[in-house]
Simulated scan of single mutants.
Amino acid sequence: MLVEPAQPSREELFAEGARVLAERERLSLLVNLPGIVFIAALSPFLSYGRFVLVAAALRAAAVALTRWRGKLARRAIERNQAVEAQVAGFARSLGFAGFTWALVLWPIARFGLSEPLGALLVVYVGVGVPLIVVMAAAMPRLLVSFGGCLLATLSAIIAIERTAAGTPLMLALMGLFVCVLLGGYGMHRQQAEVSRTMLENNKLADALAEANAELADALSHAEFLSQRDPLTGLLNRRAFFEEGCRSETLLCEGGQVLAIDLDHFKAINDRFGHAVGDRVLAAAADCMREIVHDQPGDDHCAVRLGGEEFALVLAGADRTAAIGAAESLRRLFATIPAEIGTADLSVSASIGVAALDPGQDVATALHNADEALYRAKHGGRDQVVQAAA
């Protein structure tokens, strides 16, 4: 069986990208908070410390907004809801984050590295921005939103300040960030391929599991058909002699075998047709199942030997119980015409009963029951006859 899973849809790839984004956002908090605390602690030692504090506060607001959007996205994913709106909101929050990262560098654009500690702001942004790009690489729109706002804000700052001390450094940083964003896009393409492969593998695993389940059902059905008569659902002749009726009760206690033959069944087929004849056989099997159900124990079996011939093995039963079961079965057969709605039909059976001694071959006991069955037929049919002791 060739299993070819369907290709992942755009919606599935989008949902997988959202899942990756939500997981990366959870980890980004560990990077952002220490950095914000660091630049806030650095501000008292800088002449432009107040501006750095404002930038730190805006960075904290951006982190909180991104965190909230990430939480909404994870909740939608857990509930199998659409995440398009959450991802759009997340893109806007990353745009604001790009704006706040650029603001941290504004003092550098004005004063350059005139204060040595200012270099730590450059390091902070130079390390933090690539980490945010790694998170945003889950989806192109996030890279565009974050990178676009970051570069646009840096360009505006450079245009406003235009200082000899800060402009060259800011341009170098912009070039660095462009390279980082391009690397992030390359990372996105790799991640998209990984996601596609993972989704294809998941679909393949699901398809294989479904195919295996169908194969197991087919094998189980084939095994059932190999052991059961398709019309009546009873054990068939091959299963009866090769596999059936080998219970512990029969081996240790023995039981009784009933050989059953429906009287004048050919006449029923000739007069009423084979469709009615099949209904009679199926109803006869139901009668046998009813008798089995009424017997104590669970090791009995009912068999269709072929045509209108049946057998019933009652494990652990004595002769009296077997005769009683045979008479009950004969009476049930008489009710078949009413059950199938054919009033002018008559159904009866000749039944032979023989003992099955502990450890005895079932075929031998059935042969003895068959001899009793023939005597029942020769004796006028519609009766139960015991085999000679």
Rank of each mutant, 00 (worst) to 15 (best):
P358M: 13
S348C: 15
A326N: 05
D270T: 06
V104A: 01
S43R: 02
L204K: 02
L154V: 04
A136M: 01
V134D: 09
Q256C: 13
T342Q: 13
V303P: 00
I39N: 02
R304H: 08
A326M: 03
A369R: 01
L176C: 13
H274C: 01
P358K: 10
A62R: 02
H188W: 12
A216P: 10
A164K: 14
K266R: 06
A322L: 02
F333H: 01
L171Y: 06
L173V: 08
Q295P: 05
A363I: 15
L131W: 10
L33D: 01
G35P: 02
R196C: 08
L143R: 05
V133C: 09
V63P: 01
V385Q: 08
Q190N: 14
H378T: 13
T335F: 10
E210M: 13
G316F: 03
H264A: 10
D278G: 04
V122G: 10
S220T: 09
L29T: 15
M1A: 10
T66K: 08
L235D: 03
F14P: 02
I108M: 05
H188V: 08
K377F: 03
A363L: 12
A222D: 14
R279A: 10
A317R: 04
A326F: 04
G17N: 11
E327Y: 07
I39D: 01
M198W: 15
C179K: 13
R19L: 08
I77R: 06
P140A: 11
S9P: 04
R196S: 09
R75G: 07
C287N: 05
K71V: 15
E193A: 10
L143V: 11
Q191W: 12
H300W: 08
P230T: 15
A15W: 06
A334R: 11
L171A: 10
I157P: 05
L208F: 07
L332C: 08
Y185K: 15
L94F: 15
A355Y: 07
V384E: 05
Y124N: 09
A159N: 13
T167D: 11
L94M: 11
P130T: 11
A152C: 13
E23C: 08
A317D: 06
L46D: 04
N269C: 04
A322K: 02
A102I: 07
E11I: 14
D370N: 08
A88V: 04
F99T: 00
V276P: 00
L142Y: 00
V125M: 00
